[in-house]
């Protein structure tokens, strides 16, 4: 079987800094990582391949430096990596992103064999939209399984897949047909340590690089900034509250007592509410 995993290279958000004067993001020197949610997608794909045979292709769209993330994915055991990179893709919102990725997936299907499953993470840590997976599915006419916590049985003859999907009040057990798109939930598995053989292979492997034209994009106006129905009108730091926190000075008093006194002084009604809650508990 052939599985495609879409990954994204993202800034390690723990290390993002905002310029104090211009309020712009300071990207210089911020290390990049594979979007952590995508690792659950990659592991799910690798596990299926190990069990049922076949190949895993990882795909990303991004600047040339996104090759690092693809090479990392190869060290975990992916068989092939495709980098979609073109300045026409810059500034894409989710709709324009799914146009580019869906086009590239069609091309991968043509060149390397039709994918049975496309995996993505449930969302990225920089955009946080969770829209790209569903958008790709819709554009390619794939059946869509989001927030999957467990991939169950997969029947390649009947071409069906069973999954457990997180919903608001519980877990849905769903059966659908291949080809489909699955977005994986966090903590659904743990990414393997790549083998030494994989690391050596990854170091030598050639990452396939496609421009918009190579990928078969027919309408460049649907890509990047031009192809995005949404525009960012304003980026700003949130306004500070009028007053800062009133700080509790405790001196000789035990700090816990001083703090509780300050809380109830500010909102006397709270004490009765808390007493009731504590009793109920």
């Amino acid at each position: 079987m052939h599985i495609i995993v879409c990954i994204k290279q993202v800034p390690d958000s723990a290390q993002i800094r905002v310029h104090p004067v211009t309020n712009t993001i300071m990207r210089q020197g911020v290390p990049t990582i594979i979007n952590p949610y995508d690792l659950f997608a990659l592991e799910a794909a690798l596990a299926l391949r190990d069990k049922l045979g076949g190949e895993v292709t990882v795909l990303t769209m991004g600047p040339p430096s996104a090759e690092d993330s693809l090479r990392k994915a190869l060290t975990f055991g992916a068989d092939r990596a495709v980098l979609l990179t073109d300045r026409f893709f810059a500034g894409a919102d989710t709709l324009a992103t799914t146009y580019a990725l869906a086009t590239a997936i069609r091309k991968i299907n043509d060149v390397y064999g039709a994918a049975d499953i496309v995996f993505t993470g449930k969302q990225t840590i920089d955009g946080d939209t969770a829209q790209v997976g569903p958008g790709i599915a819709k554009r390619l006419g794939l059946l869509q399984l989001t927030y999957v916590s467990k991939v169950g049985s997969l029947d390649l003859t009947a071409r069906t897949i069973d999954v457990e999907r997180r919903s608001e009040g519980g877990v849905q057990v769903l059966r659908t047909r291949l080809p489909c798109l699955v977005t994986m939930l966090e903590a659904s598995n743990e990414i393997r340590r790549g083998t030494m053989a994989d690391a050596l292979r990854a170091a030598r492997a050639e990452v396939v690089k496609w421009s918009a034209q190579d990928a078969g994009v027919e309408d460049i106006s649907k890509c990047g900034l031009r192809g995005s129905p949404t525009i960012v009108k304003r980026v700003f730091a949130p306004p500070a509250r009028a007053e800062r926190a009133s700080m509790v000075e405790f001196g000789q008093e035990p700090p816990a007592d001083a703090l509780i006194k300050a809380i109830f002084a500010r909102q006397p009604k709270l004490e009765a509410d808390l007493a009731e809650l504590a009793r109920g508990y």
Binding site: T94, D128, Q131, V132, G133, G135, A137, K138
Partner: peptide, 23 residues
């Protein structure tokens, strides 16, 4: 923006080819 709403909104917006702002 629940598991249901996000699953549905992404599909509907892509079908309609319109913009969707999450969260």
């Amino acid at each position: 923006a629940t598991t249901l709403g996000r699953d549905l909104a992404g599909s509907v917006a892509t079908t309609l080819l319109t913009g969707l702002t999450a969260d």
